[in-house]
């Protein structure tokens, strides 16, 4: 237990650093949720289990002896294609269904992925490799190499997503399709495919989140339940229709969760912090910190 002032500060910085590391994972999970929310106004409850399944896929590849980054790249591409296939085959028929039906379908998907992972890979907890081995970066003592690398990967993903939507024609078409489907269709954008690509991107980003989280929380079929909950909290906190708000929310939730766990409520009830954030934000500021306020027209 820290007794002197200096070691207490050290302890605090350490907690802050590991909060940021997991916060990066929550941030990109929240980004994946926003990706689907913007286009369909739905939250994908299966996002966590999809990410878990992708992570198992990557684990299988590294287990076969593939080098880490090759396994990483192949997993991201396969997840992207899998996300598109999922939208085309399973989600699409429910495009016009009420919210309840969509939520039930997402829950069904998450149960299926969980069962598939358990059936294919078993229910025991496994180690997952990290490419960021060795000594902590920049000679500091607060963040392990993997934690620093994970934050870096999260930031890179955020930058890439931003650049994709800002500078590419496809990104522009996707934004247009999400904002005004009817007019987009009139100018020749295939709105249905834009939705499918959105699902693909969400699946790919989720896969990266899973691969960054797995070395920290270990790999098992239920590894993403808690992470998905924190990502929900992050997305709700930052504003679920704003990618950068959601990413900020993810980092913030990571830090708050870790500090609350270390100093206030104890690590055994950390999940209730997410519950409190979600309920609190929805009651006092339903649009989140950076979200647009939605006014319904009667």
């Amino acid at each position: 237990m820290p007794s002197s002032g200096a070691s207490r500060v050290n302890e605090f910085l350490h907690q802050l650093a590991s909060g940021l590391a997991l916060g990066g994972v929550y941030a990109i999970m929240a980004l994946a949720l926003v990706m689907i929310y913007q286009a369909t106004q739905l939250v994908n409850f299966a996002q966590g289990e999809m990410a878990m399944f992708s992570t198992y896929f990557a684990w299988k590849l590294t287990d076969l002896g593939w080098p880490y980054w090759r396994a990483f790249a192949v997993t991201v591409v396969v997840s992207f294609l899998g996300g598109i296939a999922l939208e085309r085959i399973v989600v699409r028929p429910f495009a016009k269904a009420p919210v309840l039906a969509s939520v039930i379908v997402f829950i069904g998907l998450s149960l299926i992925f969980n069962a598939l992972a358990g059936w294919l890979y078993g229910y025991s907890t496994t180690d997952f490799p990290t490419p960021f081995d060795g000594r902590p970066w920049f000679g500091q003592r607060y963040m392990s190499a993997h934690e620093s690398g994970s934050v870096l990967v999260s930031l890179v993903v955020l930058a890439l997503v931003w650049a994709f939507f800002r500078f590419t024609p496809l990104g522009l078409a996707m934004r247009a399709a999400a904002q005004n489907p009817t007019s987009s269709r009139l100018v020749g954008i295939r709105v249905g495919w834009m939705l499918a690509i959105g699902w693909g991107l969400a699946a790919a980003i989720g896969a990266i989140a899973g691969m960054m989280a797995a070395p920290i929380v270990y790999l098992d079929p239920n590894m993403m339940a808690g992470i998905l909950l924190y990502a929900f909290a992050g997305a709700v906190l930052g504003g679920i229709d704003n990618p950068f708000g959601a990413a900020f929310g993810g980092f913030a939730v990571g830090v708050v969760e870790n500090l609350m766990g270390a100093y206030v409520v104890g690590s055994e009830v950390k999940l209730s912090v997410a519950l409190a954030i979600i309920v609190g934000v929805l009651v006092w500021r339903p649009s989140g910190l950076f979200g647009r306020r939605i006014v319904a027209r009667v």
């Binding site: 106004q41 739905l42 939250v43 409850f45 919210v99 309840l100 939520v103 339940a225 808690g226 909950l229 929900f232 909290a233 709700v236 055994e268 009830v269 950390k270 999940l271 209730s272 997410a274 519950l275 979600i278 309920v279 929805l282 009651v283 339903p286």
Partner: peptide
């Protein structure tokens, strides 16, 4: 105040947090 989807989110959080509480 939540409406459809947000209620699903909040109750999902409740379900996940219950064993810990």
């Amino acid at each position: 105040r939540f409406g459809g989807l947000y209620l699903a989110l909040a109750t999902f959080a409740l379900a996940v947090a219950t064993p810990q509480i």
